[in-house]
Simulated assay, not measured.
Amino acid sequence: MALGDTDGNRDGGSNNGKGNGLLLYYYHYSFYSQKVLMALHEKKLEFKSHTVMIRKGEQYQPWFLQINPRGEVPVLKDGVKIIPDSSRIIDYLEDNFSNGNSRRLIPLDQGPGIKQKVLHFRNILDQLPTDVITLGSFYNPDFCQNPKPPFIKPVRKLMMAADQNSCQNLKKCAEKNPEHKEILVQKAEVHERRHNIVTSKEEYSKVIDLVNSVLMEVETELGSHDQEKSDWWLCCDQFTVADISLAVLLDRLKCLGLEHRFWVPHRPHLGKYFSKVQERDSFVASIPSGITHLGEVAKLGYPVSLVMGTVTVVAAAITLFFYLQRRR
């Protein structure tokens, strides 16, 4: 089986995950799916994948609720084992696939101090409510400057509409799936509380302040690396789980148009770090490209003018890329 990402059947991947091997249920724009993808690529693990079409509500189809009653991606299957939640998946990979070519993402050979630092930064980064940060930026556009694909204006409108209907739709789904009713009703209540936060400028401002305080600590750590540590990542010379959490977070903030608030230009170490991490193979393999954005625009049936505008941007980016390659 080749290393990487080969989509399963559209019946829910029913022919996969029954024998040996890893099968990832994911969605390429899911923040948490991207973290797991980065971990898989960092550990150089072979895996199959099945895209769960979140924008079509496929996560609430009966076949997927049997896999994860919460209707959330990512989910990892290892044979008959089912592991939901990105943090649990990454811990599972670390515990079971950390030998040979599959290196550790929580280093054990650099002393307890480095390990504790990795776990600390992973913890404070993973506690940030990325779903609230994302949706809140749509309801509170004054916080953002120049949102980038995939979060262009039509996408933001669709996501706000989905958010406004989420509680009602979850309750309907609960009635149709009585065996999962309790979990889905609880999730509807969580969505309602989240909606109250993302639509309140005051509450969203508190979330932004929390992100700012975490990234301030990250900037301080990066700035503490002296000349001998100039090639370090966040915590050490190895790329760790903390770097995965930070890399995917920074990309999400950039796409939302929040980079000016958090690191451009007042946190130069963070900016330098993000430029460096974007060149890493696992990042490139895990974060959707301009071509992927274009495909999504076309699938959603946006006006031709918008699609063509996206094509122009992508074409310009490709031209610039090859121009820069020739100059190296």
Rank of each mutant, 00 (worst) to 15 (best):
C235R: 01
V304K: 10
P107K: 00
E182K: 14
G17M: 00
S205D: 06
L258V: 05
V36S: 03
D281L: 05
K35N: 06
E296G: 11
N196E: 12
P129Q: 10
E228W: 02
P265N: 07
L24N: 13
G12M: 01
R252I: 02
I197H: 04
G4F: 09
V207T: 14
N99I: 01
N177W: 14
S245D: 08
E228H: 05
R280P: 03
A315D: 01
N146E: 15
K48M: 14
G57W: 05
D209M: 07
Q227K: 10
I287P: 07
L210Y: 09
D91I: 00
H41D: 13
S224M: 05
T130H: 06
S33L: 01
R327V: 12
P62D: 11
Q61G: 10
Q164V: 05
A162Q: 10
Y25N: 12
C235H: 08
E58Q: 15
K229V: 01
R327C: 11
V264I: 15
K115H: 05
Q66E: 14
N169Q: 14
E94R: 10
E203D: 11
A2T: 07
K48F: 13
F31C: 01
P150S: 04
A2M: 12
V155L: 07
K181Y: 11
I287H: 07
M308C: 10
G21M: 05
Q34H: 02
L105C: 12
G223W: 00
K171P: 03
I208D: 02
N16M: 14
Q325S: 10
S213Y: 04
A242M: 03
Y29K: 01
G290K: 07
D7G: 09
L258D: 05
G100R: 07
V218C: 08
P69W: 08
V118S: 04
D11Q: 00
T220P: 03
N99M: 00
R326N: 11
R252M: 04
I287M: 04
T199I: 09
S286G: 04
T220Q: 15
K229N: 14
D7T: 12
G111V: 03
